[in-house]
Amino acid sequence: MNKLQQAIAMLHEVDSEAGRSGDRSRIHPAARLFVNVLFILLTVSFHKYNMMGLLSMGLYLLITGIWEELSFLKGLKRIRYILFLIALLGMANLFFDRNIIFQFGSMNITGGMISMATLFIKGVFTVYAAYFLLMETGIEGSCAALGSFGIPKGGVTVVLLTYRYLILLLKEVQRMLQAYQLRAPGQKGIHIRAWGSFVGLLLLRTMERGKDVYDSMLLRGYGGEGLWKEAGSRQISSGLSVVYAAAWTLALGALRVFPVFQIAGSLFG
C-alpha cells in the first residue's frame, strides 16, 4: 500500500471508529483532549534516567486501550513517522554518555543506554496518546474540544474543512498520479518538466472547488458560525465528563509522583 492509499485508509478508519456509540462517546471531547495532553506533558517531564517511573505511565494507555477497544498494533505502526529523528538523537546518547549507572550481570549499563531507552518509550507513549485521542474523539470531536478551549472559530473551521476535503483531494491526487504513471511507466515520481503543470492544475481545480464549497455553504445558510458544534454535542454527559477528567488527573498525578512499580514490588519483596 502506498502513502496515498495509507492516508485514505487512515481517514476512513478514523471516521468509522470515532462514530461508535455507548458510554464511551458520552464523555466530552474537551475532557479527553485535556487528559491526553496532561498525559503527554507528564510523560515527557520524566528525567532521562527514570525509566521505571516512565514505564508506570503506560498503565494509562493500557487501561484506555482496553476500555476503548483500540488496536495497539495500529498505534505502534505510527511510530515510524518519528523514528528517524528519535533514533538519530537517541543513538547519540550511546556515544556521548558513557557513565556506568549499574551492572547487569557482567554487562555495564551506561547512562546513554538508559536515556536512549527512555527516549524511545516517551516516543511510543506520546504517539499512542495522540492516536487514542484521535480514535476516541475523531477530528470533529477534536475541533469541538478546541472550540470549547477558546480557540477562535475561524481557525477551528479551517481545521475541520481541511480534514473534510482531505479525502477528496487525496483521491484526486491518486487519480492524477495513476493517469501520469500510465503515461510514464517505470518512472519514479513526477518528472521535472511536469512539476509546475501537475500540481498547478490540481491547485486550480482546488481553488474552483473552494469557491463552489463556499457558494453551497451560503446556499445552505452558513453565516460564519462553527461547523463543529453540532458534531461535538451529541449524547454528551457533563457529569461523566467531569468525573472522567478529575479521576484521570488524580491517577496520572499519582503515577508521576509515586514510584508505583517499586511500591508494588516492595509488597512482594
Partner: peptide, 13 residues
C-alpha cells in the same frame, strides 16, 4: 475561510 480549508487539504495532499 472555505478557501483556506480547501487549500490546507491541497497542501496536505
Amino acid at each position: 475561510i472555505p478557501v483556506m480549508g480547501v487549500m490546507g487539504a491541497f497542501v496536505f495532499a
